[in-house]
């Protein structure tokens, strides 16, 4: 790994300033960035650790209304502390990777990275969550822009994510057994004004909403409502773990399971 200057600011203002330097990059849990740096796919000149900023950590909410997760909150803390507010979100966080990954990896890092097989993007998109940054609020529908690409601008820091709490929700993930990422994962959330379905791990374009299922489930929230639907496999990921048709089938099967589990 190439060397770099390491800074660990205690406030968001200092972090924003540090990130304005040439070649500076944010470091949160490091569970994605560090392996990337070891492969020299990333070589920042300055790493700005966000783990010392208390304002970016923690889970707070109002029962039945919304829950806000600080960007630098590790998955394990979300699994424990979001449970009272949003059990499906807590369960998703508790199923990411393994315990050691969950003790370091954070929601902010996961969303900034937007890996096509990551879990959090499905929860954020299915919940119509709001991503708050050092500059603005971004709606989930505007945030995800394809593989590893997001609405974030240079030097912009995610500070937190606010999830409206649904009436019912569940995330069902089909594990890729070696990486423990989602081979395909589906998050279903039922709100008073309709159902949202977000799919991760399956598409070449990253996380997406399955609108046909949303319409069917908004009319009838049962796994049976999906029976007549088909999933177009032309944009699905095909690799040694599963063909495009296999993933398209998983989307439908897992959506049904998520509805049943919600």
């Amino acid at each position: 790994m190439h060397n770099f200057d390491f800074v660990k600011p205690a406030s968001l203002d200092e972090a924003v300033k540090a990130l304005s330097a040439e070649g500076a990059q944010a470091l949160s849990g490091g569970q994605t960035l560090m392996p990337t740096m070891k492969q020299r796919l990333a070589a920042p000149d300055v790493l700005v650790s966000l783990t010392g900023i208390a304002a970016l950590k923690g889970v707070s909410g109002r029962a039945g209304a919304s829950v806000t997760v600080g960007a630098a909150t590790p998955h394990a803390v979300v699994a424990a502390e979001a449970r009272a507010f949003y059990p499906a979100l807590a369960a998703l966080a508790g199923g990411i990777g393994d315990p050691a990954v969950r003790n370091r990896g954070t929601i902010g890092g996961s969303l900034a990275n937007n890996d096509p097989a990551a879990c959090y993007p499905a929860a954020v998109l299915a919940s119509g969550a709001t991503i708050t940054t050092s500059r603005r609020d971004i709606a989930a529908d505007d945030y995800f822009q394809g593989l590893f690409s997001t609405a974030l601008e240079e030097g912009e820091i995610i500070t937190g994510v606010t999830f409206p709490i649904p009436q019912k929700a569940a995330y069902v993930k089909f594990n890729q057994p070696a990486s423990r990422f989602a081979l395909t994962g589906v998050f279903v959330a039922k709100y008073a004004d309709g159902v949202r379905v977000a799919v991760t791990g399956a598409s070449n374009n990253g996380v997406f909403r399955w609108s046909d299922a949303e319409a069917a489930l908004s009319a009838d929230f049962s796994a049976g409502a999906l029976a007549g639907l088909t999933v177009d496999d032309s944009e699905m990921i095909a690799d040694l773990h599963g063909s495009a048709a296999y993933r398209a089938n998983l989307v439908k099967v897992l959506t049904g399971r998520a509805v049943a589990a919600a």
């Binding site: 470091l27 490091g30 003790n103």
Partner: peptide, 19 residues
């Protein structure tokens, strides 16, 4: 490489000492 940092299990190959 798992060790505990402030009581939590972490992979020490994926944590910077300075952090």
């Amino acid at each position: 490489c798992v060790v505990h940092v402030d009581g939590k299990a972490v992979k020490s190959c994926t944590v910077f000492a300075m952090d």
